[in-house]
Design a protein around this nucleic acid. Structure first.
Lengths: 134, 134
DNA sequence: TTTTATAAGCAACAATGTTGCAATAATAAA
DNA sequence: TTTATTATTGCAACATTGTTGCTTATAAAA
């Protein structure tokens, strides 16, 4: 196949079993899942490392996004509306009782920084009790 | 010493070298420090584990607070004004270039959750370029 | 079917955080 | 000041989480 120099050969993503299953898990889940939870749900379908690499890929493809929990633990959630706007600037809610982490997609906090700061991303996490636990 | 049953013996905090030095480091620092940074700055003054335990104690005493970075890494910062109000609901800024994490104490974001959520704490992190780097 | 580049598996490693227990040392009590 | 008490430390061992290199397997193209 002839390729022009400007036409950079892009890495062609593949539909593998691991990718399909992990994406399906996240799409079906109401809450964000940790790597450990995903591994457990997959029940040995694939290696630990594969999960890390699939998650990384899905993030780059903007099909999921990463959520940092209160304790620094990482969780992953599917992107519902975020993809269209290319932004993950909504609030995430972390329930102290059931430990669930949920995307509150419609809620965008407002704030104002001094002019000299250049903002490129935000991560807003609110903790407390979710509707089911309160 | 006679003690009533209701008069629970409270753990009496001690002024140790490690505690003094770590608190001093955090008070003198403009930016939040990670455990690794603190350990490096202390230069072998005490054990790794001691640093973890001192930080934990200082948090409980509300002299410092914990900041979760974008990647889930934990940093620690002194409390300037936060103690009086007993709240850490201000924004933290994480610079992508110099990797510094700063408390923006005066800036409080506003947002509104559905009624059923009970909020007990927030962790707001904004990333981008700090004044020095932009 | 054959080709080939992506992805998976495996092993080894690194970073970070936790726990139990004996020894040390800060503070209170004598 | 000396002694007693117990909070704190150091150490070792372990757990968790995430990363990297390399070989093998496999999805998709030819």
């Amino acid at each position: 196949m002839l390729r022009l120099h400007s036409m950079r050969k892009r890495k062609q993503a593949r539909n593998t079993v691991a990718r399909t299953e992990i994406l399906s898990l996240l799409n079906q889940s109401e809450v964000a899942l940790s790597h450990a939870e995903i591994q457990s749900l997959l029940g040995g379908l694939c290696d630990r490392v594969t999960i890390y690499r699939v998650l990384e890929r899905l993030i780059q493809e903007e099909l999921i996004h990463k959520v940092v929990n209160l304790d620094g633990g990482l969780k992953y959630a599917n992107c519902h509306g975020c993809k269209s706007t290319h932004s993950h600037n909504h609030i995430h809610f972390s329930c102290e009782k059931c430990k669930s982490v949920t995307c509150l997609e419609d809620i965008r906090p407002s704030f104002k920084l001094p002019e000299k700061y250049k903002v490129s991303g935000v991560n807003f996490l609110v903790s407390g009790l979710c509707p089911d636990c309160s």
